[in-house]
């Protein structure tokens, strides 16, 4: 099993370009989060990988196989944004039906367990709540014991408990070496779960790397403090090594820098009367905002 490779992928809908030459490599056996503001092209990128739509130009390959190849479906499981159920079928019946599509499916009990629907196996799938339908959709994606899992906003619509359970299960699959790609609006999820993050905006890749490398690539760490009385001197502070930006709001001062460890002793020895000193780590949310010029939009949808 090789990596998933997007090579100069362009997708246009009429005159609107959803992807404008997206090139991206998702390492095999790793968990990759695909992030981007609404309309960035995340869902389009996923649709092409799954063979649901065709690239206008460029290619998407999984190892040696082209996206959309019938043989790939046997090895891929996916959760789309909507979680349709076959009305009239019970949860158990729907899972059994999907198991039947694959050569080497996971046991029914296992699927019920990961969906947390053991108690509702005999219920009509259409009577499940929105969050339960999401969990069923995840179990359906796992039915064929896929090597590759593609999840478009998997936790949207899940309650907190379901989300935690979902990521716990996913981490187990990640440890088994499955290749996992997911999109999310919850940046803390990407930060906590992904080995690799790709940020796209306007249909192009704007940054990629580990959560750690993305955060350290930008001067987003900061030291904040209050100055007692006089002593604020912006010119002096900008001369301290590594300081990129100085912001102040009344008594409160913030120094943005790359390396807070080196800066802190200088601040303390400066003789400025300080109190309330705090060191802030970079948050993925800040990185995302800088890269895309937008705010992370929790719980939104980009259909």
């Amino acid at each position: 099993m090789g990596p998933i490779v997007y090579d100069q992928v362009v997708k246009t809908y009429g005159s609107r370009a959803a992807l404008q030459g997206l090139s991206l490599t998702l390492p095999a056996g790793k968990v990759t989060a695909l992030l981007g503001p609404n309309g960035a092209g995340k869902t389009t990128a996923i649709s092409i990988l799954l063979g649901l739509s065709k690239a206008t130009r460029g290619t998407v390959r999984v190892g040696e196989q082209m996206a959309g190849d019938r043989a790939l479906r046997e090895r891929m499981g996916a959760m789309l944004q909507e979680s349709p159920v076959a009305d009239g079928l019970r949860v158990r019946e729907m899972l059994q039906l999907f198991r039947g599509y694959y050569r080497d499916p996971l046991p029914l009990e296992h699927l019920l367990m990961i969906s947390g629907l053991e108690q509702k196996a005999g219920r009509r799938a259409s009577s499940l709540s929105g969050g339960e339908k999401r969990r069923l959709a995840f179990a359906l994606a796992m039915a064929g014991n896929p090597d590759i899992l593609v999840l478009d906003e998997p936790t949207t619509g899940m309650d907190v408990e379901s989300r935690m359970r979902f990521w716990d299960v996913l981490k187990v699959y990640a440890m088994q070496g499955k290749t996992i790609l997911f999109t999310t609006h919850y940046l803390e999820e990407a930060d906590a779960v992904a080995d690799h993050i790709a940020v796209i905006a306007d249909g192009q890749l704007v940054a990629e790397g580990t959560p750690q490398s993305l955060k350290s690539a930008m001067p987003l760490r900061k030291i904040s403090f209050r100055i007692i009385g006089e002593g604020f001197d912006e010119q002096l502070m900008l001369k301290w090594p590594g300081v990129r930006e100085v912001r102040w709001y009344g008594e409160q001062t913030e120094l943005f820098c790359e390396d807070t460890d080196r800066l802190l002793p200088l601040v303390l020895r400066s003789g400025i009367p300080l109190t309330d000193i705090q060191i802030h780590a970079a948050r993925l949310e800040d990185v995302f905002q800088r890269l895309t010029g937008t705010h992370a939009d929790n719980g939104g949808s980009n259909r």
Binding site: L52, R70, A78, P84, A86
Partner: peptide, 17 residues
């Protein structure tokens, strides 16, 4: 309805022809 709900799209992801 199956087209609107996405059930047909879901079926396209499976190996069932």
């Amino acid at each position: 309805y199956e087209r609107k709900d996405g059930l047909i799209r879901l079926m396209k992801l499976t190996p069932l022809s």
